[in-house]
Design a protein around this nucleic acid. Structure first.
Lengths: 353, 353
DNA sequence: ATGAAAGCGCTAACAT
DNA sequence: ATGTTAGCGCTTTCAT
C-alpha cells in the first residue's frame, strides 16, 4: 500500500476528510482557494494515492472495462486490443484483457469473473450466434458491446453490436476475383457456427450468383464441420491444410477466399508447399488487413477492417451504456470495409488440358 | 452488483457471517458437516459471488498481476500475453495488460496506476538499460519481474530477470550465416539503447571475431541513432527501410541479422522490393520465432525463444515474490534459445564482377 | 463449533 | 465553506 489515507492528508492540511474527498472528486469549487492549495500541498508532500478498492466499495464504480477476445496471439486481436486501450486510456479507464480461445464456457466464466470484480462494461469479441451463455449477466446489468458479430434474432434487448459489414466485404473480395476471370473459387474457413463466417459466406455466394454462377457448385472447405471450436492460432494451420487438400483435388480452384488474413497466409504457404505460385497459379484474398498482409510475399490482397475506428466506437458505446442509468435500446453499428488489392490476386490462369 | 452479501447468505443458512466467511476461505474444517452443507446450499440458492473490492479493502490482497509490454500489436508480445494469462489463470489470477509503446514515462505511469489499484506484482517487458524510473515503486514494495531484459549494474536489489540468452542467440544466428560462407553480414535494429539489442549485437560481433573477421567492419544499421523510442509496429517498417538503404549501398551485405522477426519480415519485403531473392541473393535471420516466421515466403530462419516456458517462469517467480513476506535477493533466469533453420538463409552467392 | 463486532479507506448525505 | 458520520462487504480477532 501507499499507506497514506485521506485522514492523514486531512490532518496534514488541517481540514476534514470530506474536504479532501471533495478536492479529489473534482469539486474544488466548494472550498476557498487557500484551502485548496493546502490540500494539494499535503497530498504532494505525503505522496497520497487514492485506494481504488475503497472507492469502488463505496461507490460501486470502477474505471476498468473488460475485453474478451478469441486470442491475442492473432495479430488482428492484438492490434484491436491496443486501439481499445488507447481509447480507454484517454478517459482514464483500464482494460482487462481475457482470451476466450473461442470457448463459450470460457467466455461465460470470464464475464462472471469480471462482473464479480465490479466491472460493469465488457467488449465481447465472440462470433457465436447465440449469446445465451452470457444472458444472465446482461440481465443482471452488465453492459455488453459485441464486437465482430452482427445482431442476431435471439439477442438480449440492450446489446450494442459493432462489426464490419461482412457481407459487403466478402462480396468485394469475391467480385474482385470474378473480375479477374476466376470461375472456380473456393471459400475456406474453420467453424461453421461463427456469425461472421456465415455472413462472409453469404457475401461470397451473393457475388457468385450475381456473376451467373451457381453457388451450389462453389468449393467450400471448413476443415470437417465437426471440428470446432478451433483456436485462432490454428487459423494459419487450418489454411495450410485446406490448401493442401484443395490443390490435390480434381476440381482445383484457381482462387481462394479466406475467412481472415491468418488463414490466407496459411493458404499461401500451402500453395507454395504444392509448388505453385500465389497470385499466378492460385489467387488468394484475405480479410482484416493485418500489418503482415503487406509484408507477405506476395503481399496479400485483403478486405480492410477500419479497426481503429471500430475500437473507438466500441469504447464510446460501452461508456455511454455504463454511465446511463437505464439501458438504452439495442443498436448495431456496421462499418464499411475496403478492398485492398495487392499481388496475391491475379488474372485467372488459362484452363489446363 | 450481484447484490448478494454474506449477511444474506448467513441468514439464508441460519448461521453467522463469520461462518460463511470461514467456509469461503477454505476453512470448512471449522464447522460441522451439516453446517457446511447448509452454507453451500444457501450460496447456490442465492447465487452469491464474493465482492472483490471489499475483500481487497479488508485484506489488502488482490488476485491480479500486471503485464506491461511494448505493444500487443507485435505478435510476439500477444503470444507472450496469452501464455502468461494461461499460467496466471491456473492460480486464479487475472492479468491486467498495458502497452507501454516503449515509452519510459508510460511504463512508470502504468506501474503507478497498478500500484494504486492494489496490484503488487508486475511483469515488466522493457528493454531499457535503466530501471530508475520505476525504482520508487520497487522500493515501496512492488514485486517486479523484468522480462526480455537481463540484469544490469544499477538494478534494484530485489529484481528477477527473465530473458533468453541473447548473446548466445545472436551468436547462433551469425555463426549459421558464417558457415554458409557469408562474409558481408549486416546487423539491423532500431533503438541502440535497448538491453537486448546490445546483447544481440555482442553475440553478433563475437561470432564475427571467432571467424577471424573484424567486427569494426561489420555493417550496422540502426535507423539513425537518435530515432527512438520507436513503436513495435514499426519494427517491420524499420526493417523494410533498412533493406532499401543497405541494398543500394556499394558495400552490399549478402546476409542480414535482424533484431527480431517482425524486423526480419520487413527486411525480407524490402529485399523483394529491390528485385532480389530472399535466401538466395540475400539471406535473413530473425529472432523470436513467431508463428508467422514459418508462414513467410521463404520461411524465416530464426532464433526461437521458448516463450511458453518463459511466461510460466515469469509468473511463478512473480507469485513467489508477492507471497513471500520479505523480498528474496535478486536473481536472473537466462533461457537457452534455439536456432531454427528455414529457407530465408542459403549459401553466400558467388562474389560479383 | 459458532457468533459478535471492529474496521479496511473512502464518499456523500447531512449537519454546522 | 467545512465538518461529522454512517456505512459499502468483507475478514478476523476475540468471545462464547
Amino acid at each position: 500500500m501507499s499507506g497514506v489515507t485521506i485522514y492523514q492528508v486531512a490532518r496534514e492540511a488541517g481540514v476534514s476528510p470530506s474536504t479532501v474527498s471533495n478536492f479529489l472528486n473534482g469539486r474544488p469549487g466548494r472550498m476557498l482557494p487557500q484551502t485548496r492549495t493546502r490540500v494539494a500541498d499535503a497530498i504532494d508532500r505525503l505522496g497520497y494515492r487514492p485506494n481504488r478498492a475503497a472507492r469502488q466499495l463505496r461507490t460501486g464504480r470502477i474505471q476498468v472495462v473488460g475485453l474478451v477476445v478469441p486470442s491475442v496471439a492473432n495479430p488482428f486481436w492484438g492490434n484491436f486490443a491496443r486501439y481499445l486501450e488507447r481509447a480507454a486510456l484517454a478517459d482514464g479507464y483500464h482494460v482487462l484483457l481475457c482470451n476466450s480461445e473461442r470457448e463459450p464456457d470460457r467466455e461465460r466464466r470470464y464475464l462472471e469473473e469480471l462482473w464479480a470484480d465490479g466491472i460493469r462494461g465488457v467488449v465481447l469479441c465472440s462470433s457465436l450466434p447465440s449469446l445465451n451463455h452470457v444472458l444472465p449477466l446482461v440481465e443482471a446489468g452488465l453492459s455488453l458491446v459485441a464486437f465482430d458479430r452482427t445482431a442476431q434474432a435471439g439477442d438480449p434487448g440492450t446489446l450494442v453490436n459493432i462489426s464490419v459489414d461482412n457481407v459487403v466485404g466478402a462480396h468485394l473480395a469475391t467480385a474482385h476475383l470474378l473480375e479477374l476471370g476466376h470461375r472456380r473459387i473456393a471459400f475456406v474457413s474453420g467453424s461453421l457456427r461463427s456469425v461472421n463466417r456465415r455472413e462472409r459466406f453469404r457475401g461470397f455466394t451473393d457475388a457468385l450468383e450475381q456473376a451467373g454462377l451457381d453457388p451450389a457448385e462453389a468449393i467450400v472447405w471448413s476443415g470437417g464441420a465437426e471440428q470446432e471450436p478451433y483456436g485462432d492460432l490454428d487459423a494459419a494451420g487450418l489454411g495450410r491444410t485446406a490448401a493442401h487438400e484443395l490443390l490435390q483435388s480434381d476440381y482445383r480452384p484457381t482462387a481462394i477466399v479466406a475467412i481472415n488474413d491468418m488463414c490466407a497466409l496459411g493458404i499461401s504457404a500451402g500453395i507454395r508447399d504444392a509448388g505453385l505460385r500465389v497470385g499466378e497459379d492460385v489467387s488468394v484474398v484475405g480479410f482484416d488487413d493485418i500489418v503482415l498482409a503487406d509484408l507477405a510475399a506476395p503481399p496479400l490482397t485483403t478486405v480492410r477492417q477500419p479497426i481503429g475506428d471500430m475500437a473507438a466506437a466500441a469504447f464510446r458505446h460501452l461508456l455511454s451504456r455504463i454511465d446511463e442509468a437505464e439501458a438504452s435500446p439495442s443498436q448495431s453499428l456496421l462499418l464499411r470495409p475496403e478492398l485492398v488489392v495487392r499481388a496475391s490476386t491475379g488474372p485467372a490462369p488459362e484452363p489446363r488440358e
